[in-house]
Simulated scan of single mutants.
Amino acid sequence: MGLLIDGVAHQFPGVRGGPPTEALARTHLAVEDNDFIAILGPSGCGKSTLLRIVAGLESPTTGRVLLDGQPVSSPGPDRGMVFQSYTLFPWLTVEQNILFGSRATTERARQLIGRVGLRGFERHYPKMLSGGMQQRTALARALANDPKILLLDEPFGALDNQTRALMQELLLGIWEADRKIVLFVTHDIDEAIFMANRVAVLSARPGR
């Protein structure tokens, strides 16, 4: 049945009694199974807010998100998320980071480590890895529960061009093999066209 974003809007509370900030105006998007959707728009238009709402990390002010007909109200194993920043626990190894908070087995973690090209780095800590290797670890962690949807918030924005191209190819290979729904936030038009089979463009803030 896929994903339905139905009239979702979000406001942040005002500062010191001031008016609220409208981050996202009423937004509608229907996503079919196996779709790779790039969400494109200028900085501050609500792209990341929309992704966090789909992830269940934020609640919409109005509207609703349905996944296979069921409302999304909190994080769940059916959604895996990768952020732009390297959100790994520095005191855990690559393998431990992938397993943390997931239902995956050690065998599953090692399979994913091989799949993202990190075999031999299972016991390395994040500080021992390059930026690209850290994002490979984050991608493997997002895949640990075999989610229906991958949510990626400008995941390659901090990488150099060569590493970015390698990560794009890696992600496309995973999508083509697993046929998951992918929501990929970017502000790069070329990246959106290269990666996605559909592109959703948000206007300037408040995005819609």
Rank of each mutant, 00 (worst) to 15 (best):
R141T: 09
G44K: 11
R123G: 12
Q111K: 12
Q168I: 11
E154K: 10
A30E: 13
M133W: 06
I189E: 14
G114D: 14
S48K: 03
F100I: 06
A38K: 00
L139T: 07
L139C: 08
S48Q: 03
F121E: 03
R208P: 04
R208H: 14
G69C: 07
R198Q: 07
T61R: 10
F12K: 05
H187D: 09
A142N: 03
V8K: 02
S130D: 10
E176F: 08
N197W: 02
N97C: 06
L67M: 04
C45E: 00
V65H: 08
P19L: 14
L166W: 07
Q84E: 12
F83R: 08
I37W: 02
P13K: 03
A177Y: 09
H28F: 15
R16A: 14
G207S: 02
L67K: 00
N97S: 08
I98E: 00
Q135K: 05
G46Q: 04
T163F: 07
R164H: 13
L183G: 06
D68T: 03
S48G: 04
G131M: 11
A140E: 00
L67C: 02
G131P: 03
F121Q: 02
I5H: 01
R208A: 12
S130V: 02
G44V: 12
R119P: 13
R110T: 13
W175G: 01
G132H: 05
A142C: 10
G56C: 04
S59P: 13
R119K: 15
L66T: 09
L40F: 10
M81F: 09
G7V: 11
G17M: 10
L3V: 12
E58I: 05
A200F: 15
P126K: 04
Q84P: 08
R179Y: 09
Q11D: 15
L29D: 06
L171R: 05
P77D: 13
E176H: 14
L29F: 11
G173W: 10
A109C: 11
V31C: 09
S59F: 13
T105V: 08
L88E: 05
P71G: 05
K148W: 06
G46H: 07
M167P: 01
